[in-house]
Design a binder for these strands. Structure first.
Lengths: 137, 137
DNA sequence: TTGCGTGCAAAGGTTTTGCATGGCA
DNA sequence: TGCCATGCAAAACCTTTGCACGCAA
């Protein structure tokens, strides 16, 4: 998609610096813009989108697509080699719209099961479990 | 999200009639509009979106979201009553678009796990596993 | 100096919404 | 008759793109 970042720019450092402070949290492109604007260090939104794309390519952050009309969200996972246990699963409440992200070993077994028994390679980044959250049951 | 359809309108019959003729095929909202326009029976695009939403709620069609900037696609799955003992999971190949229907006891355990451990009541009809099929791995 | 990165504004495309009209029951 | 559904146009929304300028190496 996009070649990896070659220059070390101030904007890239700002963006990455912020993401590192919120590991495991869902951040949208808009969140990034808003946060940096508050800090008086705002950077252009196209730059945010372009840097986020690069960071995804580099495996430093993950991108999750929840729904057609929900902005994509990103999550810092570090520059370490990609470890399966860093992947999180998503549950979306059909009633209140709440998004829950789970880091669960048992669910990771689902991916293994699908692959071994059904020859299907699950993509946890795209898969969303729909249902009802505890407050809406 | 939306209450089920209460009136039997000409537009709804047209839309449903078309979808029934293309089971297992990816249809976008735009495809529907284009097809009906060709047939000289065009209906408003807002109506198409609203009816599609209703049909999804009713479980008559499924909605698939492949990517943020790809239009959502729909597929006729019929109006059969929903039987618990015949829960079917869907796997969608991100590459070739193939839709796989799985009847699998182990996957049914996922629903139980989510409910018992995470207080989340899974809706298997709505949930789609995204990934790569055996031919596209 | 080279050419990638940035920022602004505008475009792009899908989906939603407001509101008056039409049609089902 | 009472509501829901429809249709048009416009809005809303996220994301991408064009282009000139700036900055890292």
């Amino acid at each position: 998609m996009n070649s990896r970042s070659k220059y070390r720019t101030k904007q890239r450092e700002l963006l990455l610096g912020y993401l590192e402070t919120v590991p495991g949290v869902h951040i949208t492109a808009n969140d990034v813009c808003a946060y940096l604007r508050e800090q008086g260090a705002s950077i252009g939104q196209s730059t945010v989108y372009r840097q986020l794309e690069s960071l995804v390519d580099e495996g430093i952050i993950n991108k999750y697509i929840i729904d057609a009309n929900t902005p994509a969200c990103f999550e810092y996972v570090g520059a370490d080699e990609h470890v399966d246990s860093d992947i999180c699963f998503h549950c979306k409440c059909e009633k209140c719209g709440k998004l829950i992200h789970l880091h669960c070993d048992e669910l990771e077994g689902v991916g293994a099961h699908l692959y071994e028994e059904h020859r299907f390679k699950l993509d946890p980044m795209r898969t969303v479990f729909y249902g009802l959250c505890d407050q809406c049951i």
